[in-house]
Write a protein that binds this DNA or RNA. Sequence first.
RNA 1: GUGAGUGUAGCUCAGUUGGUUAGAGUCCCAGAUUGUGAUUCUGGUUGUCGUCGGUUCGAGUCCGAUCACUCACCCCA
Length: 433
Amino acid sequence: MSKAKRQAPTLPKGTRDFYPESMRLQNFIFDTWKRVSKRFGYEEYEGPIFEHLELFTGKSGDEIVSQLYHFEDKGNRALALRPEMTPTLARLIVQKGNTIKKPFKWFSIPRLFRYERAQKGRLREFFQLNLDVIGTESVFAEADLISAIVAMLVEFGLSADDFSIGISSRELLANYLIEIGVSDPNLVYPALDRRLKTSPEAFLSTLLELGLLETQVQKINTFMESKSLNEIRTMISSPNSIQALNDLQNLFDLIENTGFGPYIGLDLSIVRGLAYYTGIVFEVFDRAKSMRAIAGGGRYDNLCENLGGQKVPGVGFGMGDVVLANLLKDHDLIPDLHPKIDLYIASFTNDFPKVFVLANQFRELHLNVAHPLEITKLSKQMDQANSQGARCVVYVDGEKATENTYEFKDLSKGLMHIGSIQDIVEYLKNEPS
RNA sequence: GUGAGUGUAGCUCAGUUGGUUAGAGUCCCAGAUUGUGAUUCUGGUUGUCGUCGGUUCGAGUCCGAUCACUCACCCCA
């Protein structure tokens, strides 16, 4: 029986392989994310990669199920690969919230899954940095998050010419809508969120269908196009609206005082699609607006309560790795990510026992060390040393070396030296590479 | 779910109005160089031309279907 031709294995749609070269970029992004998150005092957490389906559907119905990877396990439990991290975080808080000192700041870099058509900046499997401040209603939390976003994007090499953080308030919008007589603000959010994506006529007719009056739509347009809080102040009157506006004003003052003013702006056209946002919301955009949002987030003071726990206020954001990597490539901000090791141990005579012993002596001193793995002539060994990014090649059997010393060559400078193990360690420590 | 575009070597691509055995660069491997890498030179491997069918004496090229990928829409956590 002849073997049937086996179909060559392929990559599932919307997923990526991380060969070492891509992994280096991935690590560069993750390392920067983690470094800045820790600089701001956020602690890392994780959760399972799948959750009960119910955690994500909640009250929002079955519509979202079509966008989820979900399945039944052998115990007939309905599970789903997580499409976002915030529900998991909320679950963690509901389970242990009482025993955690508040407020607290956590971050995570979850691998997320969404069943949707892949396109630019959007895949079916991706990573997303999440930062959250839990347990305070203070606007300092928003200020902290926004500062962290600025700091990390600047750390990546971006400037105020490259990106901008638009800030808005769900609460201000909700109270304004109530003031102008819109009975249920929740009903109109999806339409408002798409305002700039549709024509003014389509926007108007959509809202008319939802039962609004043309005068109300005009007021909404004026509100969402406002570029200053003073302008808004003249349009509102209720205590709730004024409180929401003052919160926004405080946030802007705080951020401007830290010198991050050029990175932020009022943008009341930002609504965000998610239902659970309750207060300030924000989105980070490429100035060129050539791609989807780099990051987005907001306040969700009722989420834990809605999941059946106590009321615990929270605010956070997510930043996806796909859009960020595209952005960094576009701005030519990916650094040289060549592999780097300290030493490559070579031998003219293929004296592998000696090579192996010496390599491990260096490794005990915490150096990263490679060596040939099979009988190979020297030029090939040098080639390997180069491609593995070795700083120096150490020869175990150099003729000029006396007992307990070794010839070694600095590859970037092309210079030969002779020295003991200690000398080589010192050389690596002191000599600029 | 809807629409458009693209499929030729691992990668980037060329391939004339249809014409013999399908090409270049790069990458990889080997040699020039048996005790010293980066440059250079020489040689070599790699393809069901996405797949199936049709037209034709003859199809990488034309037609149809199908699949895959990309982009946009829908949606966006």
